[in-house]
Nucleic acid binder design. Sequence first.
DNA 1: CATGAATGAGCTTTCATTCAT
DNA 2: CATGAATGAAAGCTCATTCAT
Lengths: 219, 219, 219, 219
Amino acid sequence: MLSGRSLPMTDGRTSRAHSRRASTRSALLRAARTRFRAQGVHDTSIDDIVRAAGVARGTFYLYFRNKEDVLGALVDAFIAAIRGAVRRIDTTPGAPSPTEQIRDNLRRICEVLERHEDVAVIVFMGPAGLDGRSAAAVERFWKQIEAMVCDALAVGQGLGVVRPCNRQQVAIMALGAVRAALSRTLAAGDEPTHGSRRPRFDEDFLEELVTYPLRGLLR
Amino acid sequence: MLSGRSLPMTDGRTSRAHSRRASTRSALLRAARTRFRAQGVHDTSIDDIVRAAGVARGTFYLYFRNKEDVLGALVDAFIAAIRGAVRRIDTTPGAPSPTEQIRDNLRRICEVLERHEDVAVIVFMGPAGLDGRSAAAVERFWKQIEAMVCDALAVGQGLGVVRPCNRQQVAIMALGAVRAALSRTLAAGDEPTHGSRRPRFDEDFLEELVTYPLRGLLR
Amino acid sequence: MLSGRSLPMTDGRTSRAHSRRASTRSALLRAARTRFRAQGVHDTSIDDIVRAAGVARGTFYLYFRNKEDVLGALVDAFIAAIRGAVRRIDTTPGAPSPTEQIRDNLRRICEVLERHEDVAVIVFMGPAGLDGRSAAAVERFWKQIEAMVCDALAVGQGLGVVRPCNRQQVAIMALGAVRAALSRTLAAGDEPTHGSRRPRFDEDFLEELVTYPLRGLLR
Amino acid sequence: MLSGRSLPMTDGRTSRAHSRRASTRSALLRAARTRFRAQGVHDTSIDDIVRAAGVARGTFYLYFRNKEDVLGALVDAFIAAIRGAVRRIDTTPGAPSPTEQIRDNLRRICEVLERHEDVAVIVFMGPAGLDGRSAAAVERFWKQIEAMVCDALAVGQGLGVVRPCNRQQVAIMALGAVRAALSRTLAAGDEPTHGSRRPRFDEDFLEELVTYPLRGLLR
DNA sequence: CATGAATGAGCTTTCATTCAT
DNA sequence: CATGAATGAAAGCTCATTCAT
């Protein structure tokens, strides 16, 4: 107490924690992500998180208000990453074909999903256990994506490549198809193969991921 | 009651008791359904349910083992109803076109959804807050539907009407598209219009519900 | 429903119950005894008892106020039987020796124990799980027996056959010795030998049962 | 503790916390002991215990898994204390007489009983309300003591000081006699005299506690 | 007499959150 | 910043008991 201690740690746990990670906050995020994936969001207690993060219970509340708050942070980061992966379709002459561009978008999205697998599962599998607030964030995200697709459909109709249709409904269905395929592939990596891991997103999968939704809406 | 009963019997007493039993049970199911829809499954406590049903706490446990048990009962009934709405595609000559038959199936499914709206929302919106066990029941349902679609695709390929493709993936996507559309329409009836209620499933909606998924997989 | 039914039973259970037993009350006592022995008094619920007796829940309360009440009835019957087995020591000349008479008393007590085994276990094994009230009944019984022994010691001291001692304490110890031996032998019949049953009270056992306590107090 | 600590350490914060921990735990043990004695184990609720300890409900579960767990802790401590009080009989020449040694053992046991009165009552009065696990612990304890006595009898028979007999049965009876006397004296301190307290174990009592059981088995 | 559906008090246990150190 | 003991509201579930039939 009186001595000049230059090192803050009192035991292995703490020291390990400090040296190993950038910050307590990211340790908590990491731990939350992992536990959420492993036990589901709402079967994960704050205790599970802090234990996994190797910090004290009270520390959690220095960084987050509650469980939904962490989840919100995770989801926000994930959504930002997905946003970053999506490029607007370039319709200027000389640009790659729209189909090509869509495929590239989906390829980048798949990469993001692989990097953020834990959170992706949460967002894609439906708002499983996303108590109120957080579910709303996810919902907002999907609405925005949907609006983007809707706009793209309008453009496509203008260009005469998209068939006449109820754009909103078709956007929903196209998105639903993609989401279902991605969600299933994500889920597949969960329990079955513990050794090899990952059937993952290969080129054939990607091809169908583009083909099916487009056939439904192209002329 | 009025008749002169001179001998002990499995009398009105028993039958009345039985109908009381039946009605309490269905009151509980009704209440559970309503609360689940209103607050989400896992934010609904046993207390919420019994209060809504107007019975005592202990009464609940005369009929169900726990919350998942009620949910299971609701989901089972719903699944049975959906099953009852689906007819196998009849490929004998003279039968209506498969597209026609698919549209009829979907129309009947929509009717079931309207009748079982509360439970439908739970099953369609994804395993939102479905504590472990219950989520499994819903998951099983979807797996079975998926298998049915997969089989249908195989038949279709045999007949040369379905394009060559990864059947499993296409089944997932077709189902995802339909599910997304239905789910959204169901959800639409939720909060916004409390007076008029229901944008519901009209013929245009139904038409697109058939068209979009089929275009993706037909030759 | 409309047919003239001349038999009062509504199902096998009821008819079986009525024909098999003398009265509902003794069926309940029987059932209680058995369950108490099998699960312990306080792990036995009213439900266990009525189920074992094959009667309805409410019927129980036509005959007993509560669990302790049944236990009380069982214990009372047991105590009466024990009392009936004990004869005052006859000190008139020409009577068998006191030791002989004590041995006979104990022999008769052993017989009672065998007949009332279920209740005997409860009374002898100590107030195991005897919720307050019931424990008191058992306690009263032992106090009375103790008083009897105490009196006998006084008589014995008067006759000069019992050594001078703290009669109360010696009575307690003599009783404790006998009780321990009987209790252990009773307990022995419980779980171990399921096929042969019963090591039970043989003559050697009885001999020591008399000898040991008496040596401690005779001159 | 006194040494100059110049390095990070399990510092005052921690040690203070530890002593708080320790004191809460022992407050709970104390409270449990007292309530168990006053109301009987199984009529004592967790609520009774925490109220008596002056802590919140949840605090209990920081230290014990359930009621049986506390009881187990109490019983274990008691049994250990009793064990510590018993010395093997020393038969080497020059040692005090066996009777003397036995008396000393019993005297020490009586002292332990007085110190652990509350728990002693539970263990001695029979496994009252000792749900499953804990009852087993007590049972095991008595079996071990019994085995010790049995061995001692064998030795005594070898030395020719113990009469020929069924050693097991005699051990049970001797133990039963002692246990009954101790148990009764313990119980005596319970309700009657709340002011003066304690008739307790005096030398006369102790003398008879040795004499009676020994007379039954010595030649 | 007999029934069994209904009751609700009461118990155990969990867990998000606070706060003194 | 970090800690972790303490809190207490809230949930789940059981079971003795009542009462209309």
